[in-house]
Amino acid sequence: MKFATYMAAYMGLETSVVGQVAKRLENTPRVPVIWEHYQECTCCSESFIRSDHPIVADIILDKISLDYTLTLMAASGHQAEAAKHATMEKYHGEYILCVEGSVPLGADGNYCCIAGRTAIDHLKEAAKGAAVIIAWGSCASNGCVQAAYPNPTEAVPIHKIIKDKPIVRVPGCPPIGEVMAGVIVHYVTFGTLPELDRLNRPKAFYAKRIHDSCYRRPYYDAGLFAESFDDENAKKGYCLYKVGCRGPMTYNSCGTIKWNNGVSFPIQSGHGCIGCSEDNFWDNGPFYERVSSLNSFGIEATADKVGKGAAAALGVGLTAHAVAANVAKRKELKSSIAEGTRNEKNVTEE
C-alpha cells in the first residue's frame, strides 16, 4: 500500500485511485517477462534488484513472471533457451520484452552471440511476439559506452533494429532502480505504458532536468560555485557547474527520487552529474570541463536564459525554473551562510 500511494502520487493520480492501484497490484496475474542481455555490463539488472518499492522479491514472485534473464534464472544452456521459447509461444503477443544492452552490427553481428546465435537474431525473434518492449538503460536506449567514439563494434540501440513497434526508452547508466520498477509496475497495474515524451521516455521520470530539481540550484542562481574538488566551496556544498556538472542538460529523476531509496545522488555526494541518461553523453566530455554552451554565463541574471536555452535545444516543452535570486543578494547569502547567521527569519526577509 505504501508503494501504491507513492506510485499514485508520483504518477499524479487522485487519492481515490490509490485503492484501485493497490488492488490491481495484488490481483493481477503475473505478466511474463523475457529479459535479454546483449552488449552490457549488467548494471541495469543490478539496479533493478536495488529497487526499494516494490522490492524485487515482490516483483518477481507476485507481479511478473521473469521467465528469462541470464542474471538470475536457475536454468542454463538448453534449459534456459527452452524456457524462453516456451514463453514466446505460450504468451505470444502478451509478454514484456526487456532489453539490457546494445546490439553490435559489426562483423555481421558476431561480436555478441548467445547459444550460437547473434544478438540481432535473438532480438528480432523475441520482439515479434512482445506486447511491449522496454529498452533498459543507456545501452539499449542510446548505445552507451560501447557506442562512444570510435564505436569499434558498431553498437546500436535496439530501436535501430526494431522499427515496427514502440519501444519505451529508460535511459541512464544505469536507470534508478525505483524508476525501472515503476515502469514495470505501471504496465502491470494499468495495462498500458506510462505516458511517454517525444523521445519515448516515461514523462513521470524524465520530464525534468536534474538542474531544475537540484537542491544546490540556489547556489547556481546565486553564482556560488565549487572551483575545484575538495576546496572550501565544495565543502560548503556549492554548485558543481564549474567542475563539469551536466545537471543543466540532463533529464532524469536523480534530484527528486534520488538513488537507492532516496539516500543521495551524485551531486549531493559532491561529484557533478555526468549526464548518463542523455544520448551520446560519453562523447560530450571531458567530464570535468564546464559545459561549454553555458560558458559565457557569469551571474544569475543570465542563468534563466541558459536554462531555457538548454531546454529548447532539447526540444522539450518545459517551464524553465523561475530564478528568484538576484545579484545584490549573492554576497549577503554567501556571508550569512559563512557566518552562520542565515536563518528562517533572514530567508523570509529576503
Binding site: 503475473r30 521473469l66 521467465d67 534464472m73 524456457a83
Partner: peptide, 10 residues
C-alpha cells in the same frame, strides 16, 4: 504454474 526464474531448474 509460472515458475519464472526457477523454470527448468535442476
Amino acid at each position: 504454474g509460472q515458475l519464472g526464474i526457477f523454470a527448468n531448474g535442476y
